[in-house]
Design a protein around this nucleic acid. Structure first.
Lengths: 256, 256
DNA sequence: GTGACTTTGTGCCTGCGTTCACAAGCAGTT
DNA sequence: AACTGCTTGTGAACGCAGGCACAAAGTCAC
């Protein structure tokens, strides 16, 4: 059923677990922040605090990339940035095609976080003739029919789907046909793709529904007896793991 | 260290695992779709196909809510919709406060998927005086300073942060002070919250970076020897698990 | 050069999540 | 009423992930 190892093996024998890959971007952000604050070196405790994770987990994650720390000192911030960037493939610039220039598409086209991480939105695509030709954030909107030519011209291998659910599968098929092998899907629809194509989904309403579950639970058990959550003394704690699994999730797109 | 069981226990003895909770919204969407297509009943195989998961996983997930299937027949679609909705707390309407009316905030304010799932955006908030008073999607933008009054008035317990990273923690603190106990964070910043407050994060650039990793890997191992992925015969397969763990996510925000 | 201190890297254990495989159970037919 | 066929619900096994605790290994001071 599953003919590929769950954790993707890289060049030689260094297998980077999916859970680790999902956290590397967080570490990268933390490192950039510490570099801005003037730190030339950072211990696993410091980094873990900024990244919102356990220090042992961080060390184990980084150990999968190799030994880039100095015992007794910590990690060299600049070197670690390079190493993580290399592992994530961020040393080059990726051209991205964004399909669906509606409400969300507009926001994504203008999202600064993409460009700052080396992702260039090379093409905006839509089906609506009225939108074609418009300039969005300085980029002209092209018709979806022109996708093959545009994808070939810019060497696009990553696509973002921000269409309504009904159009998502067809757009997905077109992207794959145009050579796209990684897709970020914002449409609330389960995509089917050939083997070798990676799909990640972001579903905004699902996130709210998961929060609703917890809120509902808190409300129902909070009313009768326990007035407050057990164990909580009101002290702060990083609440960031509250994320992925949904997103959980989760990472790999192994074969069928 | 962790004084609360990892899987949240509901009313009596039915513990719903976090991974299951994260999938319930997907099942709910699949059920709505099948209802629209005229199915009064659905087998676990059919539902699993639409939801993009393993049928055994779906059955085990649903078994945590109780026995609502009929052996030899399948699940009653309408009853299952009710059951999942009740579990997720979607039988009532949740009022949501959205902070940060920039590019992304505009898109979120107009996102139809929220309203259709029972989430009402009761307030838009921003710090910029120029934005205050504007109508966005028919909702007036209020100043962040008015949050306490607005939150109390509408009974808001869920907040969405769509501000720049630099403002996220302060906004988070204000939301918590105003009584918000569940937060959906789009800002690329790790939030610290008191115990009892749930945080889920959605980081758009992280998703792309994870795709970049896989793309980078495909490119580097694809060139030398293996021309295509192993095991892939080009046939379709639902590639949706490729999601959550980042996003995943993951779920719980237990105590510190 | 030696000692004390700090921090990394990792072995080990525990627990959750996923999947297989099958018994239990219900509907429809004869 | 008994039988056949189909589907659910779950027991059991397996693998990944998280976290503790410690040995290895480096720096700094003297």
């Amino acid at each position: 059923m599953n003919d590929q190892p769950p954790t993707v093996r890289g060049g030689r024998d260094r297998a980077v677990p999916d859970a680790t890959v999902a956290r590397l971007p967080v570490y990268l952000r933390a490192l950039h922040r510490m570099a801005d604050e003037g730190h030339a070196t950072a211990s696993s405790e410091e980094l873990a605090a900024v990244a919102g994770v356990n220090s042992a987990k961080l060390r184990k994650d980084l150990s999968h990339l190799g030994s880039y720390g100095t015992r007794g000192v910590g990690y060299d911030v600049a070197m670690l940035v390079d190493q993580i960037s290399t592992t994530l493939g961020l040393t080059r610039c990726w051209s991205v095609a964004l399909v669906g220039i509606g409400n969300l598409g507009h926001a994504l086209a203008g999202y600064a976080g993409f460009a700052s991480r080396g992702f260039r939105i090379a093409a905006l695509l839509d089906r609506d003739p009225d939108r074609v030709g418009q300039l969005v954030n300085g980029i002209p909107v092209s018709h979806i029919d022109d996708l093959p030519a545009i994808a070939a011209e810019h060497g696009i291998s990553i696509g973002v789907i921000a269409t309504p659910a009904a159009a998502a599968q067809e757009v997905c098929d077109r992207l794959v046909a145009a050579g796209v092998t990684s897709i970020l899907n914002f449409a609330p629809h389960v995509l089917s793709v050939p083997a070798g194509v990676d799909v990640r989904k972001v579903d905004l309403s699902i996130e709210l529904q998961i929060l609703s579950f917890h809120e509902h639970r808190k409300a129902s058990i909070g009313t009768p007896s326990l007035t407050r959550l057990p164990g909580g003394r009101g002290d702060r704690r990083p609440g960031q793991d509250a994320q992925r699994r949904t997103t959980g999730t989760d990472e790999k797109a192994a074969n069928a």
